[in-house]
Amino acid sequence: MLLLDEPSNGLDIDAQKELMTLMSKLSELEKIIIVSSHDPELISTVAQSYVFLGNGRVLKQTFGQVSKEKLVNRYHQLYGLGVINDD
């Protein structure tokens, strides 16, 4: 099991894409990856379950892939930035 703490920090867009591709390949090899991120837009391309943390607790957990727009909206709802696009 791989535990990746904010692995996309400091990477440019191409490098971020390469990182996501690498994570997908590892996932296909049946490796379990737990990845922390404050970038829902990026992580939506690969994750299959989401655990939203806030105030030291789990605010929400979802299962299954989620579209980038939904995930970003959920992030803004949970962390007090309002809904950007209501779908």
Binding site: L3, I33, I34, V35, S36, A47, Q48, Y50, N55
Partner: peptide, 19 residues
Amino acid sequence: VCNIIALIGPNGIGKTTLM
């Protein structure tokens, strides 16, 4: 079922401690 699990939240919210 789930191979990639994302811990989501702003900085300083405890993600690294949980890791």
